[in-house]
Simulated scan of single mutants.
Amino acid sequence: MELAVLEGFEGSYAIIEIDGQTRDIERRLVEPKAKEGDVLKWDGAKWMVDPEATSERSDRMKKLMDELWED
């Protein structure tokens, strides 16, 4: 299963990151409720939000930020 992170939107395109490389894809190929920072999975027809992977990514990012700002 292919996973990506939604970087944002520009007009009719969504910018996603897959394995460190960004790609512009048609916005219609992304689930409408998706927002910046969500982890997406390809279901064969559309990029869908993966709530569990998004939560895990968010927790990892928060932990990294907390470690960075520790005294």
Rank of each mutant, 00 (worst) to 15 (best):
I25T: 09
E17R: 07
R23N: 07
K35R: 11
R23P: 00
G20D: 03
D59R: 13
K33I: 09
A53W: 02
A53Q: 08
P32F: 06
R27C: 07
I18E: 12
R27Y: 04
I16Q: 02
E26C: 10
L40F: 00
K62D: 04
E52M: 13
W47L: 06
K46G: 06
E17T: 08
A45Y: 14
G20L: 02
I16R: 02
M48H: 06
D38M: 00
I15K: 14
G20H: 03
S55E: 15
R28Y: 13
R23I: 08
D59P: 00
W42P: 04
E17Q: 07
P51N: 07
K46V: 13
A34S: 11
W47Y: 12
A34T: 05
L40P: 00
D59W: 07
I16P: 00
L40R: 00
D50G: 03
D24Q: 15
I16M: 04
V30F: 02
K35A: 08
G44D: 03
V49M: 01
E31D: 11
R60S: 13
V39L: 03
T54F: 00
E56W: 06
I15Y: 08
V30E: 04
P51V: 02
A45I: 10
R28N: 13
P51F: 04
D50Y: 02
T54Q: 00
Q21K: 15
I18W: 07
W47V: 05
I18L: 12
R27W: 02
S58F: 11
S55C: 11
P51M: 04
E17F: 04
T22A: 02
V30K: 02
D50T: 03
G37K: 05
I25K: 10
M48N: 08
I15L: 14
D59K: 13
K33F: 03
L29Q: 05
K41I: 09
W42V: 04
V49R: 02
G37M: 07
E26Q: 14
I15E: 10
E17K: 06
S58Y: 11
D43R: 03
E56R: 13
E26L: 15
E17V: 07
R57M: 14
G44H: 03
K62P: 01
D50F: 01
W47P: 01
K62Y: 07
I18V: 14
R57S: 14
M61H: 11
K46Q: 15
T54Y: 00
M61W: 09
A53V: 03
D24H: 15
P32S: 11
G37N: 08
L29M: 08
A34H: 06
P32D: 10
L40E: 00
T54G: 00
P32Q: 08
Q21L: 12
S58T: 15
K41L: 09
T54W: 00
Q21W: 09
D43I: 05
A53E: 10
D19Q: 13
P51S: 08
E17P: 00
M48C: 11
E36C: 06
I15Q: 11
E52V: 15
K33E: 06
K35G: 06
G20P: 01
G44E: 02
D19A: 14
E31P: 03
R60I: 10
M61L: 15
A45Q: 14
W47G: 04
M48S: 05
I18P: 02
D59S: 13
E56V: 12
P32E: 09
E31M: 11
E52H: 12
R57T: 11
W42Y: 09
